[in-house]
Design a protein around this nucleic acid. Sequence first.
DNA 1: CTGTAAGCGAGACGGTACGTCGAGTCTTTAC
DNA 2: GTAAAGACTCGACGTACCGTCTCGCTTACAG
Lengths: 216, 216, 216, 216
Amino acid sequence: MVRAGEGSALPRAVRQHTGRRRNAAARDAILDVTFELLRTRGTTGVTVDAIAEAAGVGRQTIYRWWPSKGAVAAEAMARQARVIVPVRDTTSFPDDLTQFLVDSFAGLEDSGTRRALRQLVSAAPGDEHVAEVLAEFTAQGRAVLRALLERGQASGDLSADADLDLLVDVAYGVLWYRLLIGHAPLDPRAARDLAAHLLAAGTAGATQPSRPGEGG
Amino acid sequence: MVRAGEGSALPRAVRQHTGRRRNAAARDAILDVTFELLRTRGTTGVTVDAIAEAAGVGRQTIYRWWPSKGAVAAEAMARQARVIVPVRDTTSFPDDLTQFLVDSFAGLEDSGTRRALRQLVSAAPGDEHVAEVLAEFTAQGRAVLRALLERGQASGDLSADADLDLLVDVAYGVLWYRLLIGHAPLDPRAARDLAAHLLAAGTAGATQPSRPGEGG
Amino acid sequence: MVRAGEGSALPRAVRQHTGRRRNAAARDAILDVTFELLRTRGTTGVTVDAIAEAAGVGRQTIYRWWPSKGAVAAEAMARQARVIVPVRDTTSFPDDLTQFLVDSFAGLEDSGTRRALRQLVSAAPGDEHVAEVLAEFTAQGRAVLRALLERGQASGDLSADADLDLLVDVAYGVLWYRLLIGHAPLDPRAARDLAAHLLAAGTAGATQPSRPGEGG
Amino acid sequence: MVRAGEGSALPRAVRQHTGRRRNAAARDAILDVTFELLRTRGTTGVTVDAIAEAAGVGRQTIYRWWPSKGAVAAEAMARQARVIVPVRDTTSFPDDLTQFLVDSFAGLEDSGTRRALRQLVSAAPGDEHVAEVLAEFTAQGRAVLRALLERGQASGDLSADADLDLLVDVAYGVLWYRLLIGHAPLDPRAARDLAAHLLAAGTAGATQPSRPGEGG
DNA sequence: CTGTAAGCGAGACGGTACGTCGAGTCTTTAC
DNA sequence: GTAAAGACTCGACGTACCGTCTCGCTTACAG
């Protein structure tokens, strides 16, 4: 039975066999469909069967390449990560920082993306593959932001002894916390407020990391 | 907390029948066992059957009092919340803030508790009851911290135009972000650094919230 | 989704829950449906899903009570055994024997029944539960026929030293051999010829079993 | 038969490439391995993958030359058939008949062979290729035995109006019935008893076939 | 002696069925 | 009337095979 997208928004792709070589098109279809399901359905509805059917793929093809459903979801998410983590570089560090946060928050405007990210966190504790991808994914974001903050330090906009790691965690902490709890908006104003907060804290002298031996 | 079979085997409790009245001991056993399973097992292992068996309870008894498995888990977690959110009140606001954060972080020392909290976040997107409890639980924490920060504003330790809501989110954001990702420790030194950060940011003038109409 | 026999000849039954007691109606529905599928479809088409769907039963209910698909099929077959093995008792042993065989062959007139019996044999080597039921089922038939032959011996229609076990195996051997290979008919004439053969062989002196020690 | 790794490990054969011509060695390896798997494993274990791996052959090579797995198995069985159907010709018909049955039974002494034959019957209803081979295989046996019985008729050892087809079915019926059900042995004594039975029945006048029009 | 055609080992692919696990519902029986 | 027990429907999971397809290699034969 060939169902060409019967009753559903996700029509089945028709695809060439690639013989004994891994079929990249199938891989892409699986990841695309998974992300789409993650966005449109919640945790419910992202079943391996649903992915397989929508991607026009046998279930075994999924299990051949990913160790678990979560791993697929994680990779599908991570694949969109580059879009989510934008980078700018103008002359003004405060502007760049603000823009970075505004862009990052804007990447979460779509409720589907927010849902998908929540799913990612949701699946992490129960699936080490997801946990790994989540760790890597967030590490990317931290690395980008940290590089930006280092530029701020170099330009003198941030104090030389500012605890950059803490500032990074503050920024992403606010982002994820609000994303997960949903008690406060993630709009451009919130991004600007957060940027101002970081600049203020990074300028004040007290934000350097405590040194070993000083306390604990 | 009465742990029946702490750690592993979770032997069945023996309990008096209360006839036609709701058996409060059964309720406690269910919540205790659930929390214990949450701590010791991960998402896996916390099944309704496991809870029922370990609590020496029929499955229906669980569904009689809670609408879903997540609701049980959520309530089991929320029950431990008071322990996790300590409150101090000395003369020095900086000390109180620092102590609050140190205590909050200390409440997460136990890896079982950390796991349980991660489960809570994990279950939230898929179960509205859990989401509700999570929202309520975190709201409690924010309220406590916000009250503390208001004391700081009153005492002049924080600037009058500091954006307290943002500071609250910064504090809990860092806490949850590190809890979920696990890339950085949640030890006393981290708590002190975070307290210092909040004080520095709350003192600087720039951290007031942007007013509607100014931007967006 | 409630399918009331959609597209199929086997409408789903509607049935009361029986609480903590095994639901006999479900059991019957499963066996009936299985036999029906065995008759109408071949090996193909008798899937656990098909049984479950047609019987209006969860797949787990099948696996709760039977160890394998074959076991269900086997029991479904064995249940029809009484119908297949008729018994008569008139004054004339030759007539009774002939009638028994005619009736036994007649029980195989329906091509569905023949197919079902072939399935039973087919499944036996791969499923010990089926093998067991097959053994028991055929043993019933042999016991009935043997009792009949013993009557013939008592009445003097069969020689006292006739090897009844061999005669039984001859009768059922011909029946099953033709059933499985299908090279010769199983019609009333064949039954009568077989009966005549048995009478002739059972009358001649040579058909007694060889005694231990005589040969081997 | 060349058994490569009899019994268990079935190590892969090493074989010359034959270029654009069919590789007879591969064909033999496939059939040998299939028969071996049929003998040693049951229905389980005789998978196309297992055959391909043990024969050191690509799966496609199997499907290039046989239409289905059953066809391979059937041919593998049929290949051994000549061994199983022995033929003798001495002066004494009773002796020849007895010897034929003793030899036929002896061909089933090996439990692997018995299992393989059961598999053949088992696979027949679900695979027409197997059914065909089974029909042909059994027809061979019947033809041989029938020719033998005709000699008995010619020599006067069997009555001229004996129903030879029935006698053939009686002989093979007993053999297959016992083979499939396993309730009685297939040893030399059983063979001798069966031979005696056939001689007795074939001598008595009543065993001629009923003629059309006489009954039915 | 070179190009083409076929056989081959390998293994990914779309499917179908399997048997297991867990969720939440329902009914009986005991207290 | 509440509780323990446990059977029930539903549906996802991950596995095992089937039979198909393509790749890249190797060898035979035709031009």
